[in-house]
Design a protein around this nucleic acid. Structure first.
Lengths: 331, 331
DNA sequence: ATGAAAGCGCTAACAC
DNA sequence: GTGTTAGCGCTTTCAT
């Protein structure tokens, strides 16, 4: 397979076109100060030979790869592919390409990915760290050699962050549930290590100060945990009729769990998710969920990478948006 | 942000360690024929200076980047993240890293991604092409300069393919439905341009020769199309009581559509999906679906990339597996 | 406008 | 064993 014909170099083009390699380079890059005649000759030869410049040589010479790295904690979870898509759109305009890495829910893998990207000389690194504390080391290390920005999740370093305001996120859910008449609210959280998990839980506690301790339960970002939590709450706190979930997957589980117990959603209990993933549309009833402004997140993060001077150690908080679904129809 | 301290080079290490750059290189690569004493000095200095070798310089010199490119048609669709994960696992062992690109359901984007990866000198390219015909040009072009393998989807080129046998895939669904007593089968297909769409439909036609023309409908790989198809089939072919869907997303839509029409799943109609995505677990009832052997697919593809000589223009067909869910409980 | 030549950071002969 | 040196493919002064 693969002919693998001797990869052409800029010299081959120069020779064939009867010009110097400098001229070829000029035409292929800035194209400034070249006689149209010469330019024609070069372009014609490039075309004829099907020459493709080597990104490697170019990068080494320019000391820039025109690419940025993106490290996500778990590509298989519904949310991150959406984030990745948003970055692709954002980078498209900037003429940068995206080097993607998946940490596979594991700090050791994450560290390797970060180091690999750094060694590959990406011009900047965007990361959504696995773990609020254990990811710090690698993130801080990377920051020593290039611009780094954290998105969605973060770890506690001086590295700038772009997040969707967790307090506003939960406030949207809580206010909406109350407006729809669900008077007694509970919160089903995810795993402890992700910053979003912690922040969303804390926000709920703050926004619903009257909650009983048993009204806040945390476990994992999975359907199974959602089902379990539904059972837990139904047994121990039957008075609860509005459930705020830390993400869509949990919400799906909660709805399934409630249905298994014969409790109607939204008739008897209202449920909200977070992140507006594809799950929101797939379930029955569809999910009321809080969306993150992903395109904005990607463009702000890209800006911070490209203009690190503006970044400082700052945190940019973005405004979430309520997406109505059937899971909060009215009690 | 980002200290951006002058990136260290191998010279700095050599100087500080009081050895030649060749020795440093030896220690950092093959580590062969170096006095333990020298090695210690180098490693110590590397550690102290926090030196990270430049992948760029290394690649340029070796004419190999030890990375392979993976181009998927749509990272936001539930299936491809699973495929990506499988490749990460497969490549882990081979000491290769993964450069990921998303074609965004668009041949033009796909072409750009492919070219970019080629220029980046990846050692091989794995691609699941958007379009059975319109992707040919770029795929063939890439093949001129490096080993290329197609996975899951393919376009009609001489480039080797690793696919899950579509005939066996549909056979598993059809046989299972029949065993469960669903006697009159229909097929809901996806969009025409993806090879999987075409092959799965053709397989159904072959395996269920007695089907009426109206029993095979195609539209898109979406929930909406699934709902629509359910309505179509229920109206025009009420005799149908088993529905084979070209992927999980369609199946979810079909189930929703049937329920809206008051037809019980699995009581009245049985439904199967394809690909065993996360959707299969999320729906109610859960989905009976046909899984692709992703780890096998990834490791076979990786082998073909690393040993292109063995590849020829061959097609490797892998064996799918039935995953039981609630959507075919028994009529 | 164009060419010659000096790097970019690394590896791999080839001497010693 | 270790150092010297010539590239890898490109960009970019600096002459001309």
């Amino acid at each position: 397979m693969s002919a693998d014909a001797t990869p052409l170099t800029i010299r081959d083009v120069a020779r064939q076109a009867g010009v110097s390699i400098a001229s070829v380079s000029r035409v292929l890059s800035g194209s400034r100060g070249v006689r149209p005649e010469t330019e024609r000759a070069v372009l014609e030869t490039v075309e004829r030979l099907r020459y493709r410049p080597s990104h490697l040589g170019r990068s080494l010479s320019l000391r820039s790869t025109s690419s940025i790295g993106l490290v996500v904690p778990d590509i298989a979870s519904a949310f991150f592919p959406l984030l990745i898509e948003a970055f692709e759109r954002a980078l498209d305009g900037a003429g940068l390409s995206l080097l993607l890495a998946d940490a596979r829910r594991d700090v050791a893998h994450e560290t390797r990915s970060i180091m690999d990207l750094v060694e590959r000389q990406v011009d900047g690194l965007v990361i959504s760290p696995c773990d609020a504390r254990r990811s710090r080391r690698a993130v801080a290390e990377a920051r020593r050699s290039l611009p780094v920005v954290q998105v969605d999740r973060y770890c506690t370093t001086g590295v700038p962050r772009v997040v969707t305001d967790p307090l506003e996120t939960i406030r949207l859910a809580v206010d909406h549930l109350r407006e729809r008449g669900y008077g007694t609210l509970a919160f089903v959280g995810g795993a402890g290590q992700a910053s979003t998990a912690v922040d969303r839980e804390r926000s709920f506690r703050r926004l619903v100060p009257e909650h009983r301790p048993a009204h806040v339960v945390t476990g994992a970002f999975t359907i199974e945990w959602g089902r379990e939590a539904a059972a837990l709450l139904s047994t121990r706190c039957p008075e609860v009729n509005g459930i705020v979930c830390a993400n869509d997957l949990i919400a799906v589980g909660v709805i399934q769990g409630l249905r298994d117990l014969g409790r109607a959603v939204p008739g008897e209990v209202g449920v909200t998710g977070c992140d507006d993933t594809l799950y929101a549309a797939v379930t029955t009833p569809s999910l009321t969920t809080i969306a993150q402004p992903l395109d904005r997140m990607a463009s702000v993060a890209t800006d911070l990478i490209l203009h690190p001077a503006d970044a400082g150690g700052k945190t940019v908080k973005l405004v979430p948006e309520l997406r109505l679904g059937g899971s909060t129809g009215s009690p």
